[in-house]
Amino acid sequence: MDALAVFVLALLWDLLLGEPPALVHPVVWFGKLAGLIDSRYKRRSPELDFLAGMATAVLVIAFAFLLSISPFFAPYPLNYALAVYFIKSSFAIRSLHEHIARTITDDIEEKRKAVSMIVSRDVRELDEPHLNSASIESLAENLNDSVVAPLFYFLLFGLPGALVYRAVNTLDAMLGYRNERYEYFGKFSARLDDVLNFVPARLTVLLYLPLGERKIFRYYRLARFKINSDKPIAAMSAVLGVRLEKPGVYRFPGRTPENEDIKRALKVYWLVVAEWLIIVSLLLATEVCPCLSQ
């Protein structure tokens, strides 16, 4: 297959149409499968819970891998259609913008509702500055998870890389919590997500460098709270000059974030996305990466 052509078609789909319906979205399928096992499995002991969680992750990843190789067994032109569909399903550029844009409102309850749709923390008691911070943090973190990382693994391993990464990221989002229910059951998924995001999270920071090199490096050195997720957040905080914090977890210095700063963050987002898309397209055009050529 022509990797560049498939990627461009997938990108056009994303920008013009957004996400496929949930009923036929592979990422939703990954979540449904993980959720089904999670709801059926009764917690027993740390050791058994860990093994059950690992088995769940392996099953979801195997499902993602089988989906990803199906285009290679399909006749022309169905193979191209499936490849475009699956690549598009692995990244989400337009929908991320739309989710963040909904948080730009002066109505505190509407803002709280919109932010609750994009973060896992309890937003009921958050004031407006912390809600604005949560919105910008989510944008920065998901720039890595939903754009940079899936395309990074697409460049390295083609369709299997993109969909398997997305499966792992979905597993982490559903099971990777430090609480009684998921401490052991979700540990394997959380650690695997850490491993897969180690390079992309730092690559995302590098993509911010043209927007403020010195300050980004200074903020990056402050990002010692999480293995990966706080690195892109630190870069966004540096570029915007606003305080981004998750109380009790991390805090990057700056002035109090306002609605206008969410708008500025979206502009930064599109600059970084454009930079990354150009890099991906050039690498595909020069056939430096294997992608769909196997």
Rank of each mutant, 00 (worst) to 15 (best):
D2M: 03
L11I: 08
L16I: 08
L17F: 15
L17D: 12
P20T: 03
L23G: 15
P26K: 12
L33V: 10
L33W: 10
L33E: 09
L33C: 03
A34V: 10
R44N: 13
M54T: 04
A55F: 00
T56G: 09
A57M: 05
V58I: 15
L67Y: 02
S70A: 15
S70Y: 10
F72K: 07
F73W: 14
F73T: 13
P75M: 09
P75C: 09
Y80L: 14
Y80A: 08
A81N: 09
L82H: 04
A83Y: 01
V84P: 14
I87W: 08
S90K: 03
E98F: 13
R102M: 08
I104P: 12
I104S: 05
I108T: 14
E109S: 10
R112I: 08
R121P: 12
V123E: 08
E128Q: 13
N132A: 01
N132P: 13
S133P: 05
N144W: 02
Y153H: 08
F154P: 04
L155H: 11
L159S: 06
Y165R: 06
R166E: 05
A167V: 02
L175N: 09
G176R: 02
G176M: 03
R181F: 06
E183H: 13
A190E: 11
L192H: 07
N197H: 10
V199W: 01
R202M: 00
L207P: 14
I216A: 03
G241I: 04
E245C: 06
G248M: 14
G248Y: 10
V249N: 01
P253L: 03
R255C: 10
P257T: 10
N259L: 07
I262N: 08
K263A: 14
L277M: 12
I278P: 02
V280I: 14
L284P: 01
A285T: 12
P290D: 07
